Amino acid sequence: MKQNEKQKQSTRDLMGINEITDYSIKTPAGELIYFIIRPTNISVLSDTSVSARIYALMTVLKGIAEIEMLCLNSKENFDDNKQYLKKRIEDETNPVIQKLLQQDSSNLDRMQVQMATAREFLIIIRLKNEKEADIFSYLSRIEKSLKDQGFTTRRSDNADIKRLLGVYYEQNVTTEKYEDYDGERWIVREH
């Protein structure tokens, strides 16, 4: 019986999500609001500037008790493809094909280097029992605090949340639009 019940669970049930709203994810443990932070390339900053960025983040963290953080690696991983090409190059006897495979491998290396900084940093606010009327002013204060400390940020919307879930659970960084239901794009709606 338990196996049958598990098979009937939706994807949202399995992930512990009650609802995806226009601006949040509602879970049994609270409502999650995501702020997307554009990363700073600290490798080009001086030690003093890096210390200032750390202090700014510390200031934000001290001011918000409900804060959680998440870093997503929003880049494609080509390791399996590169291993496959390496094996093919070793096994290939035709020098022309070997050269083409080597070019493919070099192209994957270039693509991976270009995407190396494709990371997303998220500040997550978990709301529990807050009054609906107070939520947006509270979130605006958090966003203002982040911006006042020099962070480029924005609150995620429904499409952002679906994309973040796709990256987090599936490492899917190529889908442009996520559907609410599998096959939704094929439904013909009459107006």
Rank of each mutant, 00 (worst) to 15 (best):
V113L: 12
R163C: 03
I33N: 06
S51W: 00
R189Q: 12
M15W: 12
E19F: 11
E31R: 12
G63M: 06
A116L: 10
A52F: 02
V188K: 15
L72Q: 11
A65S: 14
S43R: 01
L101W: 02
L14E: 07
G183V: 07
R110C: 06
P39C: 03
K99N: 14
N4H: 08
Q112I: 01
T48C: 03
S140C: 05
Y138R: 14
N41I: 06
I36W: 05
S24M: 04
F35S: 10
Y55G: 00
N94A: 12
N81C: 00
T21L: 07
K8I: 05
M1Y: 01
S49W: 00
Q114G: 08
A133D: 12
T48G: 06
N94I: 09
K147L: 11
N81A: 10
A118R: 06
N41A: 05
Q114M: 14
I33T: 06
Y84Q: 09
Q149R: 09
G30R: 00
Q149G: 04
D157K: 05
Y178W: 14
F121M: 12
R126C: 09
L72F: 07
S24V: 01
T40V: 15
S49G: 09
I187Y: 08
T93Q: 09
L122F: 11
Y34A: 01
I64Q: 05
E66Q: 15
